[in-house]
Design a binder for these strands. Structure first.
Lengths: 220, 220
DNA sequence: GGGCGTGGTTTGTGATCACATGAGGGCATG
DNA sequence: CATGCCCTCATGTGATCACAAACCACGCCC
């Protein structure tokens, strides 16, 4: 039946299914803003790119659509979502709600090793900003947040926050691409300072500001 | 090729795809607690029940798994999730976080017609409680909450809340089945009273209590 | 020159099949 | 009688195919 692309399957398919590999690839690509909003995808195109048939491509797309990372038209066509301003504000509010809680839960568990790590990541964030690398910025910025929130020991809550990031991915890219700013991440420093001081109200405020500032300038 | 189950497809397939029909059926079934936690499902079994092949069944399952409504073992076996106590507490915290915000956003838009409607639904809730109809109780209880939150005009936030309900579905059933109580929904009345009075702090408190009380007795 | 129908072509949907894997039952053995 | 092993069957995965509908572009007509 199929003579090609067999060798790669023999070893890898059992350990990690093809649909999962496709899913993960597309997911990070979307979350990091590597795809512009409204871009069209096709099952056959995805299959061709990952050297799989339509079946795993379809499952990956279905999964991403369920998370809001992809938009399915009424006829089943696949594209990244184009968010309305109301939608963006709502997702920003969700980020604030979830991430303030996550940070708050992480605070009592945030030891010096974590803070050091956050500071190091923050250096990379500043570097990406100065290089005007939008995708790199989004990636390291999310890494900063995820590193902090992992300490909250709240996997379901973190998963929800990541779902929101995913939905905002393509839009974030378009947003930060438009944003010509070389400011270092000031709010990140406030977050780190609040963590060091064990200042919960300050931490909540800093996270809320960091999360909503970028999205605010679109609506404002 | 296939001679059976064709007539149903000719009319319905175009309007609503088979995988969507399967998805919706399973979704409400899970959300309303009609399936016990840990129950096993099979793609072929689902396909047989809905008179479709494995393909739409797989897509529906994949979608539900992405929402946390179903658990996929490492070998791909499908079952409803069995939640740990930590997980339940976390989901309860998420309900509180999201639904307090939704209620708060709905408050300024809550006119008398909505309150009347909530009171009517609440009558049905009390009826279900007195009949000890667990599934009916869960269904009407969620209808009460959804009716209120729809007024918040926050579709993304509502979708997240529904995802949490979905994850808690099977566990809720097991919980309320164990709970032998004939109390009328006291917190619902507090919610309605706060809505009437335009009392936002009271509303937030009432929603938080309503949402966490049921789940509390499991951990406590 | 512009609006509209009509063809081909691309696309998603669903069915079916081959295959590998893992779970569960039955049998033998201690 | 309990325990461990093996075999069988059920189950998920992925590929391929047939089909219908939607999209797009070309050309026609006004």
């Amino acid at each position: 039946m199929n003579l090609t692309a067999r060798s790669s399957q023999d070893a890898a398919s059992a350990s990690v299914p093809a649909h999962d590999r496709v899913y993960r690839s597309l997911r990070t690509r979307i979350m990091h803003g590597e795809i512009t909003p409204g871009a069209a995808l096709t099952l056959r195109g995805i299959g061709r790119e990952f050297e799989v048939s339509m079946t795993p491509a379809r499952e990956a797309v279905r999964r991403l659509a369920a998370e809001g990372a992809l938009f399915l038209s009424s006829s089943g066509r696949v594209s990244t979502p184009e968010l309305s301003n109301e939608r963006i504000e709502e997702l920003a509010a969700l980020r604030a709600l979830l991430e303030v809680e996550l940070a708050s839960r992480a605070l009592p568990r945030a030891h010096i090793a974590l803070i050091d790590r956050l500071q190091m990541i923050n250096t990379t964030v500043a570097e990406m900003v100065s290089k005007r690398d939008a995708v790199g910025y989004i990636r390291t910025n999310l890494e900063f947040h995820r590193t902090l929130y992992l300490r909250a020991q709240a996997p379901a809550m973190l998963a929800m926050a990541e779902t929101v990031w995913l939905q905002l991915g393509p839009t974030m890219r378009a947003l930060y691409g438009r944003l010509r700013r070389t400011d270092p991440p000031q709010n990140h420093r406030l977050i780190i300072a609040a963590l060091k001081a064990g200042d919960e109200p300050g931490l909540r405020l800093a996270v809320r500001s960091d999360v909503t500032q970028g999205l605010r300038l679109l609506a404002g």
